[in-house]
Design a protein around this nucleic acid. Sequence first.
DNA 1: TTGTAAGCGTTATCAT
DNA 2: ATGATAACGCTTACAA
Lengths: 336, 336
Amino acid sequence: MSKIDDVAKLASVSIATVSRVLNSKDNVSKKTKEKVLRAIEELDYKPSRIARNLANKKNSYNIGLVISKRIDKILKGNDSFGIREFYTTVLAGIETLAKENNIQIKMETFDNGNRKLLEDLDGLLIMGGDRLPNFIENSDLPKVLVDNYIPALKVDSVISNGFDGAYYTIKQMILRGYKKITHIHGPLTYWGFRNRFEGYTAAMTEFGLLPQTFECDETPEGILYALNLSLSKKPNVIFASNDFIALIILNFLKKKKIHVPKEIQLIGFDDIISSSVSEPKLSTVKVFKFEMGNIALNRLIDLINEKNPHPAMISLFTTFVERDSTIIAKNSDQAI
Amino acid sequence: MSKIDDVAKLASVSIATVSRVLNSKDNVSKKTKEKVLRAIEELDYKPSRIARNLANKKNSYNIGLVISKRIDKILKGNDSFGIREFYTTVLAGIETLAKENNIQIKMETFDNGNRKLLEDLDGLLIMGGDRLPNFIENSDLPKVLVDNYIPALKVDSVISNGFDGAYYTIKQMILRGYKKITHIHGPLTYWGFRNRFEGYTAAMTEFGLLPQTFECDETPEGILYALNLSLSKKPNVIFASNDFIALIILNFLKKKKIHVPKEIQLIGFDDIISSSVSEPKLSTVKVFKFEMGNIALNRLIDLINEKNPHPAMISLFTTFVERDSTIIAKNSDQAI
DNA sequence: TTGTAAGCGTTATCAT
DNA sequence: ATGATAACGCTTACAA
């Protein structure tokens, strides 16, 4: 296995020069470059990824972070339900990696419809919105959607794996012996809701149980309506599309003097901050927000460097975090 | 992310000592060892594999490619339907990247159940099988599933995006004016089939159309049975779970003197090689097999290097390749 | 345009 | 039993 200094020796240059050629820097004379290339060829030299990774610490890009009006409002507003924290955590993931790599991030909202917005940018991170503004969709800048996937658009995206999270969690509950599990969910036209819905359904049907699902919009009235329908099924467990819905359900349940978790267990999705301060604290499926931001930016950098350019969707596995709205089994055989 | 000298400082020892503890050398006093362990705990320190490998003078990896018996048989057998070519292409993707990076690949089948199989390996690529052998699941080697995803297992996987491919393609057909589209699919207990099924269903319901789906096993008889049921719905288009099923349907349709595509259009999924030589040539949704292998190995290397260690599923977008089993619209407004 | 040398985070070999 | 320090193979200021 030849190394960079074997090449350097054979080409009678310094390793720095070899490195330059390797990384196609422009400041190498044609002659030298050819010499080096020949040496590389002759030795069948392949740079070591390990050393490369170790040595690689810096990069500098300008990337645009485009957010929808809705998210902009959430970020600027006050944080009634801890939803804001969801996005700030994603942003933290982005910014952390950005800082480490000396990357400039410029935040803008969608609607400016401004081509000039894209000038001088190396890539785009996009959060929110169920479709892309034309000037963004048509630009050939590398882009990745964060916490969002738009079917049939074939744009790179980084999301959480709602199917797997729901499937895993519902399966746990079933294995504990709870068979009457209902699902209260937002509109299935949203990929996120749909995806979690499918996971719930898959787990139920796999165990020969009938899925019982109730759709609602995300208003308290809508949720109450779905909840009442759900309650008529006498569920052991209610699984909600997200923590926001779960927390509202929790309030209603408390008003109705239905004890959580003794009478009904409740599970959310997302792990927004309010879930850990509610009474009782909410058991939920944790979405890795920080990682989501981090990985999205990472993918964007790869795209910019034309590394693995084939468009892909990256979905991060979730984790079931159990708090007090659920009864933790003492051992896996336990059931009621 | 704390480093070894943070630990050393906190424990007030040298990094050499920390390293000794890390690698459980015997020549460290109990006291010191405990101090170090405490510091490690407190800082939540994890040694970097990258640096480790570098220091170990390791500039290449040994990775194991573990395949199921079924795939082994396919690879060794003769290629009646071009299914073999599916896997050889994936393998080509793996091997190309391996060669570029001086990576040794050792191929084994699942069932050897042998712990020793894992010795001396830096990571695992796994193809086929609906569950993992215990000795593999329990090993803490980095692993990635290729063309496979096992719900609730939370192991990294690289697959094709069946939902998106089906959704996109069906949407195209609907926009061309064909509204009577049926779906003949394999067992939904297989993630791949289910995923494509969901995409079909999502597209249909989005346009207010009734999904008409027919399940079959993957035998000619089963397929014929489902086909006959499907035919009773007088479809414009039949969308099959994969090319294998589609090709068998094509044969039956020819026997029944039903003209493809004039009377019924037919769409497969995968783009196996036989699809391009059938009569008529099959329109299908192309799975990027080479890229799948390539990206899987790439992901594994990242995992070994602890880059983006959070487990994720990577699903590659597909492409609708139109051949002769489908009527290509002259312009997007065209409909029948 | 090219070379020198300082990292990157470990492990291993010397000393002490 | 412990600590300095030289590798490991590369990238990249900074110097020349």
